[in-house]
């Protein structure tokens, strides 16, 4: 009897240690599940003919791209749009712009200067500028800033069709948005590349309760124009409890206050050395009692019971379907 007690005493600490060595705590929450992404919204609408029929607007010869693909953006300090091409003999060429320059700020005519962060803001400015007018820009070239004046001429043919980006947020709202097409953006008063169309929503997304639906075009979030779908994601990440959202549905502008959710918290594991332990993850629950005399494992597809360490039985789904009446 004494020997058995000694053996048990020696065995207990290792058992306790084994139970105490839990896996490292996750730093980030897992992605939200149950995202609904209708297939009909997967591809962008075929509206090329309508796009070519849009007013052409002004032209300066500066083709700009996103400056967010940069270390500055990763540090949250990005500003400006990057000149990616300069048309020969254009106003931008005459003003001395070269690829790689950043356009930080622009002012059309007598209007106040606006900071530039997304290409759609520059393209809206250029499109709306009247031929014969000028746009004053602040240029950043390798950290040195200077001003330049671009004379606007009439655009003679449509610009190329922009690329569509799909961005996913699965931490607080559970939403997938894509870039609006130029036709959709124009109808909402945004520049080409602006606007974000909801193409995916989590089943339990708080935005459903706010009345937002698949296909809605988001044009303003918390007072900021959606000049790029990233603006929506940035607002969601930075928001506290809720966001003011302005959207367009069937050509009608509407507003709503959309909540941002906090994660549900659940007890994942309980551990009492030697007596009881319970560990739960999304698809598995394991319960053990009295040094493992009783142990139960449960998943959505199967269960397993173990009693007195040696008796074990399991149950679960089979590989056959049940007969369906009718």
């Amino acid at each position: 009897m004494t020997a058995r007690l000694l053996a048990l005493a020696l065995a207990l600490p290792p058992l306790g240690l084994a139970g105490g060595c839990a896996s490292a705590l996750p730093v980030e929450p897992p992605p939200l599940v149950d995202m609904e992404e209708p297939l009909e919204l997967f591809a962008e609408p075929d509206d090329e003919a309508a796009r070519r029929a849009l007013p052409l607007g002004g032209f300066t010869g500066a083709h700009v791209g996103d400056a967010r693909d940069s270390l500055d953006a990763l540090l949250g300090e990005a500003e400006g749009v990057e000149v990616v091409r300069v048309v020969e003999n254009s106003a931008a060429d005459a003003a001395g712009l070269v690829p790689g320059d950043l356009l930080v700020e622009a002012r059309a005519g007598d209007a106040p200067a606006v900071p530039l962060r997304h290409p759609s803001e520059w393209r809206a400015l250029e499109r709306d500028a009247a031929p014969g007018s000028s746009i004053a820009v602040v240029v950043d070239r390798a950290g040195v800033r200077f001003g330049a004046e671009l004379d606007v001429v009439a655009r003679v043919r449509p610009a190329g069709r922009g690329e569509v980006e799909r961005l996913r947020e699965e931490d607080r709202v559970g939403v997938v948005v894509r870039t609006a097409t130029e036709v959709e953006a124009h109808a909402a008063g945004l520049g080409p590349g602006g606007g974000a169309v909801i193409v995916g929503l989590s089943k339990r997304s708080p935005w459903r309760a706010a009345g937002l639906r698949h296909g809605d075009l988001l044009v303003e979030v918390d007072g900021r124009a959606v000049a790029h779908p990233q603006v929506v994601l940035d607002a969601i990440r930075a928001g506290e409890d809720e966001l003011d959202v302005v959207y367009v549905r069937d050509g009608q502008r509407a507003e709503t206050v959309a909540a941002l959710s906090d994660r549900e918290r659940t007890v994942r594991e309980v551990y009492v050395p030697g007596l009881f332990s319970r560990e739960r993850s999304r698809d598995r629950t394991t319960t053990s009692a009295v040094l493992g005399i009783f142990k139960k494992e449960h998943t959505p597809a199967a269960s397993r019971y173990r009693i007195l360490w040696i008796f074990r039985f399991g149950t679960g789904d089979t590989d056959r379907l049940e007969e369906v009446d009718g």
């Binding site: 996750p26 730093v27 980030e28 540090l75 390798a142």
Partner: peptide, 24 residues
């Protein structure tokens, strides 16, 4: 350490985190 034309930035991962962290 990532070097651009204008700055040096450190990138690292915390234990069990998929997303990297950045510091100027």
């Amino acid at each position: 350490v990532l070097l651009s034309a204008s700055r040096a930035v450190a990138v690292w991962w915390e234990a069990d985190a998929d997303e990297p962290r950045y510091a100027a």
